[in-house]
């Protein structure tokens, strides 16, 4: 089972008291094919997580949503809560939780939680249930002899696999992982990333939302860089992390801030989402900014690489227009 996610001009606004509005997500468009992993990276508070919540229909009540997010023709943004609960979450989109340990019920064994989810999502029962639960555990490479353990008896890596196994029970073709590696040490990050990658190679689509560039590099086919609620660069992971490198000054700055590179921070701080500057939101921090930046640059380019900047670093021949 495969599914293609197509997000078109997605915007999320939160009206505040006093007439101000938080522009959490603005005009975001991207496609995600089966067997592809897209990493959404950016500083904390840039709107990444709001985007994920919008796709899962988990926004708070005061959110105003615009645009469309089509999953095989079904618009996730206008679908009713009943539809989402019965037919989408867990069945067509699975959420890989941020901290697996807190997603498992501490007082029940992994097996009983697995069987409950299997029964809920597939309707399996009786003697078949046990087998189905074991098969589900195996899909996430959760060892069958650990099924009767309680969550606190599992290592961090195994807890992650258990949580992933639960998320995958419904055979959802699209996975969304929100900061799956935060707070994990490097070994565990690598292992988690490799686990997730296996599911991509098995034909699932994966949207990873992360601020961890190393994890993104390890797992992603394409990278979308988000800044102040907009996607400013959307390009192949190989050219982003390797040569010739990102084209948007912000993306470049983010990458250069890594300790394995020049370890220099981008000056300043991201703007507040309820008080975005006119024009390009990055201009106040950008050393390439000119008068042109008073107009918001559109995301332009091909599927191979698109950038929203008037002064992008020019190395891709077809859009070397800066």
């Amino acid at each position: 089972m495969t599914a293609r996610l197509s997000v078109q001009e997605l915007s999320v606004r939160f009206p505040l008291r006093g007439g101000r509005t938080v522009a959490a997500v603005t005009g975001v468009s991207f496609d995600l094919d089966p067997g592809e992993c897209l990493a959404l990276v950016g500083e904390s508070g840039c709107g990444k997580s709001v985007l994920a919540s919008a796709l899962l229909g988990l926004l708070p009540g005061n959110a105003r949503v615009g645009g469309a997010a089509l999953l095989d023709g079904l618009d996730l943004l206008t679908a009713g809560e009943k539809e989402l609960a019965r037919r989408v979450r867990g069945r067509r989109i699975a959420l890989i939780p941020q901290s697996p340990a807190s997603h498992l019920t501490p007082v029940r064994t992994v097996r009983s939680q697995m069987e409950e989810t299997v029964r809920e999502l597939t309707g399996a029962g009786g003697p078949k249930l046990r087998g189905a639960a074991e098969a589900a555990a195996e899909r996430a490479e959760f060892p069958a002899d650990h099924l009767d353990r309680y969550p606190h008896q599992l290592s961090g890596g195994l807890a992650q696999r258990a949580a992933t196994a639960l998320a995958l029970v419904g055979e959802a073709p699209l996975l969304i992982a929100d900061e799956p590696t935060t707070g994990l040490d490097r070994d565990l990050v690598d292992r988690t990333a490799d686990e997730l990658r296996r599911h991509v190679d098995a034909g699932r689509g994966l949207l990873v939302i992360t601020h961890d560039l190393a994890a993104a590099e390890r797992i992603a086919d394409r990278v979308a860089v988000m800044y102040a609620g907009r996607i400013v660069e959307l390009t192949g992971a190989a050219s982003f992390f390797g040569a010739p490198g990102p084209r948007h000054p912000y993306a470049r700055g983010l990458l250069e801030a890594l300790p394995e590179r020049s370890f220099t921070p981008i000056p300043g701080m991201p703007p507040e989402l309820d008080a975005l500057p006119a024009g390009c939101a990055f201009a106040p921090r950008c050393d390439r900014a000119t008068g042109d930046c008073a107009a918001v640059p559109a995301l332009a380019g091909s599927r191979a690489g698109a950038v929203a900047c008037h002064h992008a670093y020019s190395h891709a021949p077809e859009t070397a227009d800066a």
């Binding site: 522009a23 009540g61 949503v65 645009g67 206008t78 701080m269 991201p270 500057p277 106040p284």
Partner: peptide, 21 residues
């Protein structure tokens, strides 16, 4: 930190805003 905005951002209008509860 980034200077205060000069005016309201030239944002794309959000069509068909649907509240979600």
């Amino acid at each position: 930190p980034a200077p205060a905005p000069a005016e309201t951002p030239a944002e794309a209008p959000v069509p068909a805003a649907a509240p979600r509860r």
